[in-house]
Design a protein around this nucleic acid. Structure first.
Lengths: 152, 152
DNA sequence: AGAGATAGTATCGAGCGCGATATAAATCAA
DNA sequence: TTGATTTATATCGCGCTCGATACTATCTCT
């Protein structure tokens, strides 16, 4: 409480007292951790996220992918174009509503699901946190995501 | 457990069962939340992170900023060049070791600390999580950051 | 002192993320 | 039905992030 104190756990302007920084750092480090596992498939991390969604929901419109990934079309359009060019997906304009572009997996895209099945396990082995802690963080982050989405 | 189940809480390949996605989403949403608060100062979120570090540690070498922000010089160099151009900081080659560039705050940069003091509070008011939960997430993320840094 | 190794910073290229804007199709209102 | 609004997607430009590489300064070893 002294004014000469160099560390104040209540000073919100200190980096270590902010939630935003570990969020920012952990997200980048997580992306780095995935990168070597994805490189053998020539996939980037955002591309992998899109495939995760498609393995659950394909075929589906671009808007649906955007809603799940929390990404706008200005990010998704070039991303999907690349995935199509590399043979993972197809993009087809809907005939019932020509504004909609339906995205589906190619055979190669479907097959990749099995190839990538080992990745989550491989990655969790790099963090020696126990499963409970990771589940707690995950649940709390999901709640935070929901709140931040509501206020925007 | 049925093979016909559409939701399996143990299937690590589902987006909702992965830690990486809420981390990725929360980090981007947090950046979006900061953006309107920083826009009035013409600051981006990464630039704000650098200033947070400098308000604690300036003057200091670029390498020190990189170590705290977990950013390499390929990211920091252009970022710091922009901050210098906009008058927040100065960059000076050390005379005792000419490899080192010392970064310091300008008067404008120092003054900005008071201007930005309200930002953390303004932001926390946007999340209606209780303080304990946020502190728990923060602590767990810091632990995750440490672990991910060690394994890389 | 000289040669090789190491350290600190900068540059380049590619992909991501997003605000702003555009375009075409579908819907709604009068 | 026409005109206005909304919806779904795409394009553009800028800043961030990072792997690969380069450059200079310092250090180490002989």
């Amino acid at each position: 409480m002294s004014e000469h104190s160099t560390k104040d756990s209540h000073d919100l302007q200190l980096l270590e007292n902010q939630l935003c920084f570990p969020l920012y750092a952990a997200s980048r480090l997580m992306t780095r951790a995935y990168q070597p596992l994805l490189a053998r498939f020539q996939l980037t991390y955002p591309q992998y996220i899109i495939l995760l969604i498609l393995w659950e929901d394909a075929p589906c419109p671009i808007g649906h992918i955007g809603a799940r990934a929390i990404l706008e079309t200005n990010t998704l359009s070039p991303l999907l174009k690349t995935l199509e060019k590399q043979g993972w997906i197809t993009r087809t304009r809907s005939v019932v509503d020509e504004r909609v572009v339906m995205v589906d997996l190619t055979d190669k895209g479907h097959a990749m699901k099995q190839e990538c099945a080992c990745i989550p396990q491989e990655l969790y082995e790099q963090t020696d946190s126990n499963a409970e802690d990771l589940a707690t963080v995950k649940a709390m982050l999901n709640q935070l995501v929901t709140q931040l989405q509501e206020t925007m």
